[in-house]
Computed example of a mutant assay.
Amino acid sequence: MFVLPKGIIKRIEAVCRNFLWDNSADYRRATLVGWDTICRPKEEGGLGIKDQEVWNKAMVGRLVDWVATQRDSIWVNWVQSNYLKGQAWMEYKPSSNSSWVWRRICKVKEEMRNGYVNGEWSVQPGGYSPAGCYAWFRGTRPRVQWDKAVWNGWTIPKHQFMGWMVAHKALNTVERLVRFGVVIEEKCYLCGIADETIEHLFCECIYSRRVVVELNKNTAWTFPVRDLVEWCSIRAGTGLQKGVQNAIVMSLMYQVWQQRNRSRNEMSLLRPERVAGLTPLSQFGNKLEEHRFVSLSTGLGRFKNPGGELRVPSLKSGTARIYDPRGGPDEDMPSKKKLCAKALLGSTTGY
Protein backbone atom coordinates (compact mmCIF):
# COMPACT_ATOMS: atom_id res chain seq x y z
CA MET A 1 0.00 0.00 0.00
CA PHE A 2 1.59 3.21 -1.21
CA VAL A 3 0.56 6.79 -0.55
CA LEU A 4 0.67 8.19 -4.08
CA PRO A 5 1.29 11.90 -4.72
CA LYS A 6 -1.59 13.69 -6.43
CA GLY A 7 0.58 14.43 -9.46
CA ILE A 8 1.16 10.72 -10.04
CA ILE A 9 -2.55 9.97 -9.60
CA LYS A 10 -3.51 12.67 -12.12
CA ARG A 11 -1.02 11.24 -14.61
CA ILE A 12 -2.45 7.74 -14.19
CA GLU A 13 -5.97 9.07 -14.72
CA ALA A 14 -4.84 11.01 -17.79
CA VAL A 15 -3.37 7.85 -19.36
CA CYS A 16 -6.59 5.91 -18.63
CA ARG A 17 -8.78 8.73 -19.96
CA ASN A 18 -6.72 9.18 -23.12
CA PHE A 19 -6.70 5.46 -23.85
CA LEU A 20 -10.48 5.30 -23.45
CA TRP A 21 -11.14 8.01 -26.04
CA ASP A 22 -8.25 7.57 -28.46
CA ASN A 23 -6.59 4.20 -27.81
CA SER A 24 -3.37 6.05 -26.99
CA ALA A 25 -1.78 7.94 -24.11
CA ASP A 26 -1.54 11.25 -25.98
CA TYR A 27 -5.17 12.24 -26.59
CA ARG A 28 -5.37 16.04 -26.44
CA ARG A 29 -8.98 16.90 -27.29
CA ALA A 30 -11.92 17.45 -24.97
CA THR A 31 -13.61 14.28 -23.78
CA LEU A 32 -17.27 13.60 -24.55
CA VAL A 33 -18.24 12.46 -21.04
CA GLY A 34 -16.82 13.79 -17.79
CA TRP A 35 -14.33 11.67 -15.86
CA ASP A 36 -16.45 11.85 -12.72
CA THR A 37 -19.36 10.29 -14.64
CA ILE A 38 -17.10 7.63 -16.16
CA CYS A 39 -15.91 6.61 -12.69
CA ARG A 40 -19.41 5.89 -11.44
CA PRO A 41 -20.62 2.27 -11.22
CA LYS A 42 -22.43 1.02 -14.31
CA GLU A 43 -25.77 0.97 -12.53
CA GLU A 44 -25.30 4.69 -11.82
CA GLY A 45 -24.55 5.55 -15.44
CA GLY A 46 -20.77 5.20 -15.49
CA LEU A 47 -18.30 2.69 -16.87
CA GLY A 48 -17.24 1.28 -13.51
CA ILE A 49 -13.68 2.64 -13.75
CA LYS A 50 -12.27 3.43 -10.34
CA ASP A 51 -11.47 7.00 -9.37
CA GLN A 52 -7.75 6.60 -8.66
CA GLU A 53 -7.57 9.38 -6.08
CA VAL A 54 -10.48 7.99 -4.07
CA TRP A 55 -9.22 4.42 -4.46
CA ASN A 56 -5.80 5.41 -3.14
CA LYS A 57 -7.47 7.02 -0.14
CA ALA A 58 -9.41 3.82 0.47
CA MET A 59 -6.18 1.80 0.33
CA VAL A 60 -4.45 4.23 2.72
CA GLY A 61 -7.53 3.82 4.91
CA ARG A 62 -6.40 0.26 5.60
CA LEU A 63 -3.37 1.67 7.38
CA VAL A 64 -5.68 3.96 9.35
CA ASP A 65 -7.77 0.94 10.34
CA TRP A 66 -4.71 -1.05 11.38
CA VAL A 67 -3.80 1.66 13.86
CA ALA A 68 -7.42 2.08 15.01
CA THR A 69 -7.80 -1.64 15.72
CA GLN A 70 -4.24 -1.97 17.09
CA ARG A 71 -3.30 -4.64 14.62
CA ASP A 72 -0.38 -6.81 15.68
CA SER A 73 2.25 -5.69 13.17
CA ILE A 74 5.73 -4.17 13.30
CA TRP A 75 4.55 -1.00 11.52
CA VAL A 76 1.66 -0.40 13.98
CA ASN A 77 3.99 -0.93 16.94
CA TRP A 78 6.44 1.55 15.41
CA VAL A 79 3.67 4.15 14.94
CA GLN A 80 2.52 3.68 18.54
CA SER A 81 6.00 4.21 19.94
CA ASN A 82 7.20 7.02 17.66
CA TYR A 83 4.07 9.05 16.89
CA LEU A 84 1.10 8.30 19.14
CA LYS A 85 3.03 7.67 22.39
CA GLY A 86 -0.13 6.73 24.26
CA GLN A 87 -2.46 9.26 22.61
CA ALA A 88 -5.85 8.19 21.30
CA TRP A 89 -5.59 7.63 17.54
CA MET A 90 -8.78 9.49 16.63
CA GLU A 91 -7.69 12.54 18.65
CA TYR A 92 -4.11 12.58 17.41
CA LYS A 93 -2.83 15.59 15.41
CA PRO A 94 0.43 15.27 13.45
CA SER A 95 3.19 17.81 14.02
CA SER A 96 4.21 20.20 11.29
CA ASN A 97 7.62 18.56 10.89
CA SER A 98 6.16 15.08 10.25
CA SER A 99 6.74 13.48 6.87
CA TRP A 100 4.21 14.19 4.12
CA VAL A 101 3.31 10.49 4.01
CA TRP A 102 2.37 10.48 7.70
CA ARG A 103 0.45 13.74 7.36
CA ARG A 104 -1.45 12.24 4.41
CA ILE A 105 -2.37 9.16 6.48
CA CYS A 106 -3.62 11.41 9.26
CA LYS A 107 -5.64 13.47 6.76
CA VAL A 108 -7.35 10.33 5.48
CA LYS A 109 -8.01 9.37 9.11
CA GLU A 110 -9.90 12.63 9.62
CA GLU A 111 -12.03 11.94 6.53
CA MET A 112 -12.84 8.46 7.88
CA ARG A 113 -13.68 9.62 11.38
CA ASN A 114 -17.47 9.40 10.91
CA GLY A 115 -17.14 5.78 9.81
CA TYR A 116 -15.89 4.62 13.21
CA VAL A 117 -18.03 3.77 16.23
CA ASN A 118 -16.21 2.88 19.45
CA GLY A 119 -13.00 2.36 17.50
CA GLU A 120 -14.56 -0.10 15.03
CA TRP A 121 -15.27 0.48 11.34
CA SER A 122 -19.06 0.46 11.09
CA VAL A 123 -19.74 1.27 7.44
CA GLN A 124 -20.15 -2.35 6.40
CA PRO A 125 -20.29 -5.61 8.37
CA GLY A 126 -17.16 -7.71 8.65
CA GLY A 127 -14.76 -4.90 9.33
CA TYR A 128 -12.78 -2.64 7.05
CA SER A 129 -12.37 -3.29 3.34
CA PRO A 130 -10.95 -0.92 0.70
CA ALA A 131 -13.91 -1.60 -1.62
CA GLY A 132 -16.42 -0.71 1.08
CA CYS A 133 -14.52 2.42 2.04
CA TYR A 134 -14.24 3.43 -1.63
CA ALA A 135 -18.01 3.17 -2.03
CA TRP A 136 -18.47 5.15 1.18
CA PHE A 137 -16.17 7.92 -0.03
CA ARG A 138 -17.87 8.06 -3.41
CA GLY A 139 -21.39 8.02 -2.05
CA THR A 140 -24.41 6.64 -3.88
CA ARG A 141 -26.51 8.10 -6.67
CA PRO A 142 -29.88 7.05 -8.04
CA ARG A 143 -29.75 4.04 -10.32
CA VAL A 144 -30.31 4.77 -14.00
CA GLN A 145 -33.11 2.94 -15.78
CA TRP A 146 -31.05 1.82 -18.74
CA ASP A 147 -28.03 0.05 -17.22
CA LYS A 148 -29.29 -3.51 -17.81
CA ALA A 149 -30.35 -2.62 -21.35
CA VAL A 150 -26.82 -1.50 -22.23
CA TRP A 151 -24.72 -3.85 -20.09
CA ASN A 152 -26.11 -7.27 -20.91
CA GLY A 153 -24.46 -10.46 -22.00
CA TRP A 154 -26.02 -10.41 -25.48
CA THR A 155 -24.55 -7.10 -26.65
CA ILE A 156 -20.97 -6.97 -27.89
CA PRO A 157 -18.72 -4.41 -26.12
CA LYS A 158 -18.43 -1.80 -28.87
CA HIS A 159 -22.22 -1.73 -29.19
CA GLN A 160 -22.53 -1.43 -25.42
CA PHE A 161 -20.25 1.59 -25.47
CA MET A 162 -22.35 3.08 -28.25
CA GLY A 163 -25.53 2.59 -26.25
CA TRP A 164 -23.86 4.19 -23.23
CA MET A 165 -22.90 7.22 -25.32
CA VAL A 166 -26.44 7.58 -26.67
CA ALA A 167 -27.86 7.32 -23.16
CA HIS A 168 -25.66 10.26 -22.15
CA LYS A 169 -26.43 12.09 -25.43
CA ALA A 170 -22.69 12.48 -25.90
CA LEU A 171 -22.31 11.74 -29.62
CA ASN A 172 -20.65 14.42 -31.72
CA THR A 173 -23.72 15.20 -33.80
CA VAL A 174 -23.75 18.24 -36.07
CA GLU A 175 -25.85 20.08 -33.49
CA ARG A 176 -23.04 19.60 -30.95
CA LEU A 177 -20.30 20.48 -33.44
CA VAL A 178 -22.09 23.73 -34.32
CA ARG A 179 -22.15 24.73 -30.66
CA PHE A 180 -18.38 24.21 -30.49
CA GLY A 181 -17.80 26.11 -33.72
CA VAL A 182 -16.39 23.10 -35.59
CA VAL A 183 -18.91 23.22 -38.46
CA ILE A 184 -21.47 25.71 -39.73
CA GLU A 185 -23.96 23.56 -41.64
CA GLU A 186 -26.43 21.77 -39.36
CA LYS A 187 -28.01 19.36 -41.84
CA CYS A 188 -27.97 15.61 -41.26
CA TYR A 189 -25.15 13.77 -43.02
CA LEU A 190 -27.47 10.86 -43.80
CA CYS A 191 -30.54 12.53 -45.28
CA GLY A 192 -29.50 16.16 -45.70
CA ILE A 193 -33.00 17.33 -44.84
CA ALA A 194 -33.26 18.21 -41.18
CA ASP A 195 -30.84 19.39 -38.49
CA GLU A 196 -28.78 16.51 -37.13
CA THR A 197 -29.59 15.81 -33.50
CA ILE A 198 -29.55 12.49 -31.69
CA GLU A 199 -33.35 12.44 -31.82
CA HIS A 200 -33.36 13.04 -35.57
CA LEU A 201 -30.49 10.68 -36.35
CA PHE A 202 -32.08 7.59 -34.80
CA CYS A 203 -35.76 8.46 -34.73
CA GLU A 204 -36.73 10.73 -37.60
CA CYS A 205 -34.03 10.34 -40.27
CA ILE A 206 -35.34 8.75 -43.47
CA TYR A 207 -32.16 6.71 -43.87
CA SER A 208 -32.30 5.29 -40.34
CA ARG A 209 -35.96 4.43 -40.64
CA ARG A 210 -35.27 2.69 -43.94
CA VAL A 211 -32.55 0.59 -42.31
CA VAL A 212 -35.07 -0.56 -39.70
CA VAL A 213 -37.68 -1.34 -42.33
CA GLU A 214 -35.13 -3.42 -44.22
CA LEU A 215 -34.24 -5.23 -41.02
CA ASN A 216 -37.78 -6.48 -40.64
CA LYS A 217 -40.02 -5.63 -43.56
CA ASN A 218 -43.02 -7.22 -41.88
CA THR A 219 -42.89 -4.87 -38.90
CA ALA A 220 -42.93 -1.09 -38.86
CA TRP A 221 -40.14 -0.28 -36.44
CA THR A 222 -39.69 3.20 -35.02
CA PHE A 223 -36.96 4.49 -32.74
CA PRO A 224 -38.25 6.31 -29.63
CA VAL A 225 -34.71 7.56 -29.10
CA ARG A 226 -35.64 10.28 -26.64
CA ASP A 227 -36.04 7.45 -24.16
CA LEU A 228 -34.50 4.69 -26.25
CA VAL A 229 -32.36 2.92 -23.68
CA GLU A 230 -34.96 3.41 -20.95
CA TRP A 231 -37.45 1.85 -23.35
CA CYS A 232 -35.18 -1.16 -23.71
CA SER A 233 -35.00 -1.57 -19.94
CA ILE A 234 -38.77 -1.72 -19.46
CA ARG A 235 -39.63 -3.66 -22.62
CA ALA A 236 -41.86 -6.63 -21.82
CA GLY A 237 -40.61 -10.14 -22.52
CA THR A 238 -38.49 -12.94 -21.17
CA GLY A 239 -34.84 -12.51 -20.26
CA LEU A 240 -33.79 -14.03 -23.58
CA GLN A 241 -36.24 -11.91 -25.55
CA LYS A 242 -35.21 -8.70 -23.86
CA GLY A 243 -31.52 -9.50 -24.17
CA VAL A 244 -31.74 -10.15 -27.91
CA GLN A 245 -33.97 -7.19 -28.69
CA ASN A 246 -31.76 -4.81 -26.69
CA ALA A 247 -28.68 -6.15 -28.46
CA ILE A 248 -30.35 -5.56 -31.83
CA VAL A 249 -31.18 -1.97 -30.89
CA MET A 250 -27.59 -1.29 -29.79
CA SER A 251 -26.27 -2.89 -32.96
CA LEU A 252 -28.59 -0.77 -35.12
CA MET A 253 -27.50 2.42 -33.40
CA TYR A 254 -23.86 1.48 -33.88
CA GLN A 255 -24.26 0.73 -37.59
CA VAL A 256 -26.28 3.89 -38.27
CA TRP A 257 -23.64 5.99 -36.52
CA GLN A 258 -20.88 4.27 -38.53
CA GLN A 259 -22.66 5.19 -41.75
CA ARG A 260 -23.13 8.75 -40.56
CA ASN A 261 -19.37 9.03 -39.97
CA ARG A 262 -18.66 7.40 -43.30
CA SER A 263 -20.88 9.94 -45.05
CA ARG A 264 -19.12 12.80 -43.30
CA ASN A 265 -15.53 11.63 -43.73
CA GLU A 266 -15.62 9.67 -47.00
CA MET A 267 -18.72 11.12 -48.68
CA SER A 268 -20.03 7.63 -49.34
CA LEU A 269 -22.89 5.63 -47.88
CA LEU A 270 -24.02 2.02 -47.91
CA ARG A 271 -27.54 1.26 -49.02
CA PRO A 272 -29.98 0.70 -46.12
CA GLU A 273 -30.47 -2.97 -46.99
CA ARG A 274 -26.73 -3.57 -46.73
CA VAL A 275 -26.58 -1.81 -43.37
CA ALA A 276 -29.47 -3.97 -42.15
CA GLY A 277 -27.43 -6.99 -43.16
CA LEU A 278 -24.65 -5.89 -40.83
CA THR A 279 -26.91 -6.44 -37.81
CA PRO A 280 -27.98 -10.10 -38.18
CA LEU A 281 -29.00 -12.29 -35.32
CA SER A 282 -26.17 -14.64 -36.27
CA GLN A 283 -23.94 -12.63 -33.93
CA PHE A 284 -25.75 -14.41 -31.10
CA GLY A 285 -24.77 -17.84 -32.39
CA ASN A 286 -21.98 -18.32 -29.89
CA LYS A 287 -24.35 -17.51 -27.05
CA LEU A 288 -26.85 -20.10 -28.18
CA GLU A 289 -24.12 -22.66 -28.78
CA GLU A 290 -23.44 -22.68 -25.06
CA HIS A 291 -27.00 -23.84 -24.38
CA ARG A 292 -27.47 -26.25 -27.33
CA PHE A 293 -31.18 -25.54 -27.11
CA VAL A 294 -33.41 -22.54 -26.77
CA SER A 295 -36.35 -22.24 -24.41
CA LEU A 296 -38.88 -19.46 -24.93
CA SER A 297 -42.06 -18.70 -23.02
CA THR A 298 -43.95 -18.23 -26.28
CA GLY A 299 -45.66 -21.59 -26.54
CA LEU A 300 -43.15 -22.93 -29.07
CA GLY A 301 -41.61 -25.35 -26.60
CA ARG A 302 -38.00 -26.51 -26.56
CA PHE A 303 -36.18 -27.41 -29.75
CA LYS A 304 -32.94 -29.28 -29.41
CA ASN A 305 -30.39 -28.54 -32.07
CA PRO A 306 -29.56 -31.64 -34.08
CA GLY A 307 -25.85 -32.20 -34.53
CA GLY A 308 -24.94 -29.10 -32.60
CA GLU A 309 -26.42 -26.63 -35.10
CA LEU A 310 -27.65 -23.31 -33.80
CA ARG A 311 -31.23 -22.29 -34.44
CA VAL A 312 -31.13 -18.55 -34.76
CA PRO A 313 -34.07 -16.52 -36.11
CA SER A 314 -33.57 -14.98 -39.50
CA LEU A 315 -34.63 -11.45 -40.34
CA LYS A 316 -37.59 -12.70 -42.36
CA SER A 317 -40.73 -13.38 -40.40
CA GLY A 318 -41.84 -16.98 -40.58
CA THR A 319 -38.46 -18.60 -41.11
CA ALA A 320 -35.41 -19.35 -39.09
CA ARG A 321 -31.92 -20.29 -40.09
CA ILE A 322 -29.65 -23.05 -38.85
CA TYR A 323 -26.15 -21.82 -38.17
CA ASP A 324 -23.73 -24.73 -38.09
CA PRO A 325 -20.70 -23.97 -35.86
CA ARG A 326 -18.74 -26.53 -37.86
CA GLY A 327 -18.97 -24.32 -40.92
CA GLY A 328 -21.54 -26.30 -42.89
CA PRO A 329 -24.23 -24.72 -45.08
CA ASP A 330 -27.29 -23.29 -43.43
CA GLU A 331 -30.85 -24.09 -44.41
CA ASP A 332 -34.37 -23.10 -43.51
CA MET A 333 -35.82 -24.89 -40.54
CA PRO A 334 -39.02 -26.86 -41.06
CA SER A 335 -42.06 -24.68 -40.66
CA LYS A 336 -43.38 -26.92 -37.88
CA LYS A 337 -40.37 -26.24 -35.65
CA LYS A 338 -39.40 -22.73 -36.67
CA LEU A 339 -38.12 -20.04 -34.32
CA CYS A 340 -39.03 -16.85 -36.11
CA ALA A 341 -37.83 -13.41 -35.14
CA LYS A 342 -41.33 -12.30 -34.23
CA ALA A 343 -41.64 -15.15 -31.74
CA LEU A 344 -38.26 -14.42 -30.22
CA LEU A 345 -38.75 -10.69 -29.90
CA GLY A 346 -42.41 -10.84 -28.98
CA SER A 347 -44.85 -8.30 -30.34
CA THR A 348 -42.90 -5.41 -31.89
CA THR A 349 -45.81 -3.17 -32.64
CA GLY A 350 -44.73 0.43 -32.28
CA TYR A 351 -41.03 -0.44 -32.05
Rank of each mutant, 00 (worst) to 15 (best):
W35R: 05
D51M: 04
V144L: 03
W89E: 04
R71Q: 07
D332I: 13
T31F: 04
D72V: 01
C106I: 09
G301I: 10
R326Y: 04
M165F: 08
I74F: 12
V183N: 02
M112Q: 05
T222L: 14
Q283W: 05
G327V: 11
I193A: 09
E53P: 00
L201S: 03
Q145D: 13
S314F: 07
E120P: 00
V54T: 15
V144Q: 02
D330W: 13
C191R: 03
K187F: 09
A30I: 08
E120H: 07
P94R: 06
K85C: 14
G299Q: 03
Q70W: 02
E175Y: 12
R29G: 05
P306R: 09
A341M: 13
M267D: 01
V60T: 15
D26N: 15
F180C: 08
R28P: 02
G163F: 09
C16D: 05
P329H: 11
L300S: 14
A88Q: 14
L345N: 01
F223L: 12
L215F: 14
V183P: 01
P94M: 05
W55A: 15
W66N: 06
W66E: 06
W231T: 10
R321W: 09
G86E: 07
R40H: 10
Q70V: 04
N114E: 12
C133Y: 03
K148T: 12
E175V: 00
E120G: 00
G153K: 15
C205I: 10
E214S: 14
S347D: 15
P325Q: 03
D324E: 11
E309Q: 04
K169D: 14
A30Q: 13
T348F: 01
N114W: 00
K85V: 11
W164P: 01
S208C: 08
N305G: 11
A14Y: 14
K187A: 10
A25V: 04
C188S: 06
L32D: 06
L240T: 12
E331I: 06
Q245A: 12
S233H: 05
I184C: 10
F180D: 11
Y207G: 05
I248F: 03
D36R: 14
I49W: 14
W75A: 09
R11M: 13
A276G: 09
T37W: 02
E110L: 08
V249G: 00
K338G: 01
N246F: 00
R264E: 02
R11W: 11
Q80D: 10
T31L: 00
V144T: 09
G350S: 06
